[in-house]
């Protein structure tokens, strides 16, 4: 057999699988989004955008991503720097930080629901300490802000570790001599971080940010558990169109919108954090 063909042949089954179970359904969904009763139309997108909830949905989703991702990035960088510097117990620390990764997003939402609920841990603690007379409705329909904060907390708790793990791996790839050279040539710890670590970490930052941003636009179960319908997000609305309102075509349009936003941000970060070929390690 021709040796050059072998790798392609070995990749064939996986490629076929993806084509049949991903690309084909994807084409069907795209087709549904742009048609109604077999005719091409943009009505599905108009219906979606015309819904009274739509502006709030887009705003909530973008706002969540805009708040959660930078906080997570900063925390992940800090944690990764600390973990990278550990001489012993490094894997133990990684395991502990990675525990939330093993929990599904719905379970994560439920855990935080148990904390913020009317009869949850937080209220019990506050009344036991005599700080409040009666339970506070953190997640009631009038307290959108506290719902939002609860979702932000749960998301940070749940998905910071994935960024940290990627960044720890990336930091491990930067030769120690660069840090030492920077140290000898007068860079303070902060300057070393900004002038050496961050630029050399760009490939890992790119991966971590893109992955996290895509996940942020797909946020659903945590919001559903903590906010129900009080904090509508794009993915929740897609679910609504499909199952509550039974309109597959608008649901497909909504799904495509999420995809478009994800692709847009992916391209943006690929461009912004690009490392020129000659400047690679």
């Amino acid at each position: 057999m021709n040796g050059k063909a072998l790798p392609y042949l070995l990749l064939m089954p996986a490629t076929l699988f993806l084509c049949v179970f991903f690309l084909y359904p994807f084409a069907l969904v795209a087709f549904e989004a742009f048609t109604r009763d077999g005719a091409f139309t943009l009505d599905n997108f108009r219906t979606m955008a015309g819904s009274w909830k739509f502006p709030a949905t887009v705003r909530n989703t973008l706002l969540l991503a805009a708040i959660v991702v930078p906080i997570q990035l900063a925390m992940a960088l800090l944690m990764a720097s600390v973990v990278s510097r550990l001489e012993t117990g490094r894997s133990a620390a990684l395991y502990i930080f990675a525990i939330p990764l093993g929990i599904s997003d719905l379970a994560a939402g439920l855990i935080w629901l148990a904390i913020f609920d009317q009869s949850g841990f937080l209220n019990t603690l506050l009344s036991d300490l005599g700080i409040v007379d009666r339970p506070i409705m953190f997640l009631g329909y009038q307290s959108k802000l506290s719902i939002f904060i609860a979702v932000v907390l749960a998301e940070i708790w749940r998905a910071t570790a994935i960024m940290m793990v990627i960044l720890v791996a990336g930091m491990g790839l930067i030769p120690r001599e660069y840090h030492e050279a920077a140290e000898v040539f007068g860079a303070s710890p902060w300057k070393r971080f900004v002038r050496i670590t961050l630029p050399l970490l760009r490939p890992s930052l790119q991966t971590a940010i893109i992955l996290r941003v895509i996940l942020a636009f797909e946020v659903f179960a945590v919001v559903a558990a903590l906010g129900g319908t009080n904090l509508p997000v794009l993915m929740g609305e897609t679910f609504n169109w499909q199952f509550t309102l039974q309109d597959r075509n608008v649901a497909a349009a909504s799904a495509l919108l999420i995809l478009a936003i994800s692709i847009g941000f992916t391209l943006l970060f690929l461009r912004v954090l690009r490392v020129p070929r000659e400047a690679r390690i």
């Binding site: 030769p175 001599e177 030492e180 050279a181 040539f185 860079a187 303070s188 760009r202």
Partner: peptide, 20 residues
């Protein structure tokens, strides 16, 4: 004192020329 306050400069074995 940290290295930067010692009035030294250093040439490393693998040069450590910053790639970026």
């Amino acid at each position: 004192l940290p290295p930067r306050d010692r009035g030294i400069a250093m040439v490393f074995q693998n040069y450590a020329v910053f790639p970026h």
